[in-house]
Each structure stands twice: as structure tokens, then as C-alpha cells.
């Protein structure tokens, strides 16, 4: 029934490799910085974009995230995976940027960024495209729910990593994930897709 092998050894190998890069960055190795950037910038960008909803802002923020890595590499203690550290810096930057903007402007931008050329949910259901409706509903979640869904499903963060990254207890991580999925089910139901859960 396992959909993927339990990839702890792969995670460990990657963490070791990233750690070595970060040590070299701490010593001022620009090439190591290029490699770390090439390896992680797309995922960090997507994480930030899903939070701030504006591609230009997201690009500016990832430059700032990796500049912080360049400056703070000596302080990285490898208590968590490098990717978790990067996402934590990115999250802080994104939330700061969001606080600087008026809420209504942000919502408008977010809506613009997630707008896709697909039909609205009702029409899509008529086309029996459940996957498309599901994606549409994923974009309609609150930032808090979007964030946890992305961290767990896309960024493959464990309960412990999400807890550290978001700064909440592990039990709250599980509860928040449950409510995010419940909200998703409600949105799907409103769009005509009743999955019979919860």
C-alpha cells in the first residue's frame, strides 16, 4: 500500500550534501552558493509565490532569502534540513512582505495570480474534470491552509519539520492539516464534488 518508499536515507544524503555546501558558503565560496541556489530556488520561489501571490514580489523575495543564506550560513546548525531552513527564511520574508501591503491589495493580487484560464468550478464539473476542480479549490483555501497543504504534500515536510517551520506544536500541525482538508472538502462539495469525507 505504500505509495512511495520511505526515503529517509535519501533525505539524509541530501541533507549532508546541502550541509557541506552551506559550510563552504560560510567560508565565502560563491560557487557553492550557485549550486545551492540552482538546487533549491524553484521550490523556494513556488512556496513564496503561493503565499504572496505576485510573481515579481516572489522573485524579489527569493533574492533576499538566498542573500540571507549567504550572510547567515555560518549560523546554520543543521538541526533541520537545509531545505527546511530555506523555507523558514522564505516564510518570514513572505509574511513580512504581506504585512507591508494593504490586505485588500494583496487579496486582489493573489486572486489575479491564481486565476487560470480554466472554467469556473461548476462548468468544470460538467466536464467531469474533478482534478481541475480540485486544483481550483486548492487555490481558494486561506493562506494558512494553503501553506500547510503545500508543505506536507509538495515540499514533503514531516510533522516535526512543519512544526519547527511554522512555529506551532506538532499536535496543532495535525489539527491544522485536518481542518485544511476539511475546508477543501467543503469547497469541493460547494462546487458539486461530494467525496463523502469527512
Amino acid at each position: 500500500m505504500l505509495t512511495r518508499p520511505i526515503h529517509e536515507p535519501i533525505v539524509e544524503m541530501q541533507a549532508t550534501s546541502d550541509e557541506a555546501l552551506i559550510s563552504r558558503i560560510a567560508a565565502g565560496d560563491r560557487l557553492a552558493m550557485q549550486v545551492l541556489y540552482a538546487r533549491h530556488h524553484v521550490r523556494v520561489y513556488r512556496f513564496v509565490l503561493r503565499l504572496v501571490g505576485n510573481p515579481t514580489t516572489a522573485e524579489d523575495l527569493i533574492s533576499e532569502v538566498f542573500l540571507d543564506v549567504w550572510r547567515q550560513a555560518g549560523k546554520f546548525e543543521a538541526r533541520s534540513a537545509a531545505s527546511t531552513w530555506l523555507l523558514a527564511i522564505a516564510r518570514f520574508k513572505a509574511l513580512s512582505a504581506m504585512r507591508r501591503k494593504p490586505e485588500e491589495e494583496l487579496d486582489e493580487e493573489t486572486a489575479g495570480a491564481i486565476e487560470d484560464p480554466a472554467d469556473d468550478p461548476e462548468v468544470a464539473v460538467e466536464k467531469k474534470d474533478k482534478a481541475q476542480v480540485l486544483r481550483k479549490c486548492l487555490t481558494a483555501l486561506s493562506p494558512e491552509h494553503r501553506e500547510i497543504i503545500d508543505l506536507v504534500y509538495y515540499h514533503e515536510k514531516s510533522v516535526e519539520e512543519v512544526a519547527r517551520l511554522v512555529g506551532i506544536p506538532e499536535a496543532t500541525v495535525k489539527t491544522r492539516m485536518f481542518y485544511a482538508r476539511k475546508r477543501l472538502a467543503e469547497l469541493l462539495k460547494a462546487a458539486g464534488v461530494d467525496r463523502g469525507w469527512p
Binding site: H7, V152, E156, K157, V159, K174, R181
Partner: peptide, 11 residues
Amino acid sequence: SLLPWHAAGTL
């Protein structure tokens, strides 16, 4: 409650 992490292979 663990199913999402099981699907992602992070348990």
C-alpha cells in the same frame, strides 16, 4: 491524521 504524511512518505 497521519495519512497525508504517509502519502508523502515522510513518516
